[in-house]
Design a protein around this nucleic acid. Structure first.
Length: 592
RNA sequence: GCACCCGUAGCUCAGCUGGAUAGAGCGCUGCCCUCCGAAGGCAGAGGUCGCGCGUUCGAAUCGCGCCGGGUGCACCA
């Protein structure tokens, strides 16, 4: 990597490591980090404290020696010692200056590809065919979408798959419940095996009604459950009428889901489901048996996945139920095989709530044990449950489940209200206003979800979703739109961008914030944590707001070269802001 | 019962491969639009980092034990 494309932190890091090395201290002690106390200096190195024991010297003596080594380095304006031996580092003005213009010259505002790029599948652990999308689907959609965007941006070859839930007991529920309502449909006549209608006998609302009906009945009535189980097995065995129904169910579901995901701005490369791997199941199971991995137990066919090191023995993975049906884990294994053979990925990510941790542990162990796929390359990207304001989990059967589409329209309404209150978008026609309200509402929802640490539970609070002040999506859009407005004004005034010469404190801080973009991206990728990117984008907007308040850009008293410099800084900020938002899956309007 | 996750300001949350006076946002108090968009900026009040013990020069961060909450624990997905 050329010095030109290195961040200020990397350059300081190189110097400090060299200083440690020159003093015969291990280079890892020379690591430079963003300072915890930015009032003193933007960067610091804590290695002198850690190296004290190693070198059998006092931390301050080591820090003093390091600081002396750094004295004549042009990139460092100041290196001094604080507290018990912290080395505080202030980069040279020239370094910040050079880096600012380097960032401005960069297509990606300083972001780089990952050092090693891979082929990665992102599995969204998709919604079930039987159920409409509700708030519970928000997280996997929004987090999964952010990850696919982030990984692509980092140079990986990503294939996203919705992985529809279209194969288990739920299909048996739907079939039997439909039969109960409309017994005369041709699909239920076992003597007929072809010539089914091309149009579906049900729509998505029917499915949304039939499934809970059947599910409730089956829970209370064992005989009713047997009907669903039997239908499931018959479907899987290939009963033609049921297969035809399945295809209808999938078709109407996909149409509805495409609408919901379209509204969310989430796209998938593949719309495959569990049903798609049905033909692979029998041979796969046969092979597991032949290889001695699968065994009979209590009437079911299982793979034992317990390990000696387990603190708590993990139950076996059930491949084929005692009723003869393939289960969730079975289709997941078959899907891994399918992906391995058709896409040959390095890694598969499963964006699914943490409640299914042990299921995935079972599947991953089975995949590793049977030689299907290396366990270490299967990652469960778990996220917390969606809770109500009472802290209890949002449950389907609790009643009053909010549909995703309702949530989106409520967010849009709230955004419209806010636009009115703030007197924004007053001069626009109804169409443009509606479009802006849509973007603002969506930004509010997505950002409030993504900014949480993925793995913790999530409190679903509509008030919070639609609050547009502080650390929110709309604040970020506001920051972006304000810059766009500024650029338009500058163009009218004939001010053009020029070399960036950061002078004011707010300008330097903005440059250093811009410079941390690549670190945030790399860190977010490594941890698969979107909130790290959220934090960066928010810090950027904050740093810009401060700069905007402190440094007048187009004011008459601002000298022309300063105007051009600040305008360039604003333009650079906008590019990075929009890039960051885009990776989060958030779209900014031109004005609002 | 066992396993995993969580417990940080009134509220919602960052920080957790140990490092200085623990940070944001909301809410609260007070300032700032004759100055590029105030959904903004500035300042302030507000914290035994669940509790205890231990490791360490140094612990919100690591270890152990409690307490409190969530989730899961063989044929649903």
């Amino acid at each position: 990597m050329s010095k030109h494309s290195q961040s200020v932190l990397q350059i300081l890091n190189t110097h400090v490591e060299a200083a440690f090395s020159a003093l015969d201290l291990p280079v890892e002690y020379g690591r430079v980090v963003v300072a915890g106390k930015p009032d003193i200096a933007p960067f610091q190195c804590n290695g002198a404290l850690a190296a004290a024991k190693f070198a059998k010297k006092s931390p301050r003596d080591i820090a003093q020696a390091v600081v002396e080594k750094l004295e004549n380095i042009a990139d460092i304006a100041k290196a001094d010692i604080g507290g018990p031996g912290f080395i505080n580092l202030t980069p040279a003005q020239s370094l910040v200056h050079t880096r600012a213009n380097g960032l401005a010259a960069s297509e990606t505002t300083g972001a780089r590809h990952a050092e090693v790029t891979k082929k990665i599948i992102v599995d969204f652990g998709g919604p079930n065919v039987a159920k409409p999308m509700h708030v519970g689907h928000l997280r996997s959609s929004v987090i999964g979408d952010c990850l696919q965007r982030l990984l692509r941006f980092r140079g990986h070859d990503v294939v996203s798959d919705i992985h529809l839930g279209d194969w288990g007991l739920q299909m048996g529920h739907l079939i039997t419940e439909l039969k109960y309502e409309q017994p005369d449909l041709i699909y239920f006549n076992a003597d007929i095996t072809e010539g089914y209608p091309t149009t579906s006998p049900v729509d998505i609302d029917d499915l949304a009604r039939l499934y809970p009906q059947a599910s409730i009945k089956a829970k209370e009535d064992a005989d009713r459950m047997v009907l669903s189980r039997t239908a499931t097995s018959e479907l899987q065995a290939g009963r033609a009428g049921y297969r035809a129904l399945l295809n209808h169910f999938i078709e109407v579901s996909i149409i509805a889901l495409k609408k919901d995901f379209g509204a969310l701005g989430v796209n998938f490369d593949l719309w495959k489901g569990e049903a798609a791997v049905d033909p692979l199941i029998a041979p796969m199971v046969a092979k597991f048996k032949a290889d001695g991995f699968a065994e009979e137990s209590e009437g079911a066919l299982i793979i034992r996945v317990a390990e000696d090191s387990d603190k708590k023995e993990l139950p076996p993975l059930i491949l084929i139920s005692s009723a003869g049906a393939a289960l969730y884990a079975t289709t997941d294994l078959a899907t891994i095989q399918d992906r391995r053979d058709t896409l040959n990925p390095d890694t598969i990510l499963y964006v699914v709530d943490f409640g299914q941790s042990s299921h995935f542990e079972q599947v991953y162990r089975a995949a590793g044990k049977t030689g299907l796929f290396p366990k270490k390359d299967l990652e469960h990207i778990k996220f917390g449950t969606v809770n109500g304001t009472d802290g209890k989990r949002f449950r389907t059967r609790a009643g009053g489940v909010m549909r995703l589409s309702d949530l989106l329209s409520q967010a849009k309404d709230a955004a419209t209200k806010r636009l009115d209150e703030a007197g924004l978008a007053a001069d626009m026609d109804a169409t443009e206003r509606a479009e802006i309200a849509r973007m603002v509402g969506l930004a509010a929802i997505k950002f409030s979800d993504l900014q949480n640490v993925r793995t913790t539970n999530y409190i679903f609070d509509l008030e919070r979703f639609t609050s547009f002040e502080g650390k929110t999506g709309p604040y970020l859009l506001y920051a972006a739109v304000r810059i766009k407005s500024l650029l338009r004004k500058a163009e009218k005034m004939g001010v053009v961008v020029g070399e960036i010469t950061p002078e004011a404190d707010a300008e330097k801080k903005l440059v250093l914030t811009l410079d941390s973009f690549n670190r945030a991206l790399a860190n977010a990728e490594e941890k698969r944590m979107p909130h790290i990117l959220c934090d960066h984008v928010y810090s950027l907007a904050q740093a810009f707001s401060k700069f905007y308040a402190d440094c007048h850009i187009l004011a008459p008293e601002t000298p022309d070269t300063v105007k051009s410099s600040r305008l360039a800084l604003a333009a650079l900020t906008l590019r990075q802001l929009e890039l960051g938002l885009d990776i989060l899956g958030i779209e900014a309007p031109e004005r609002m």
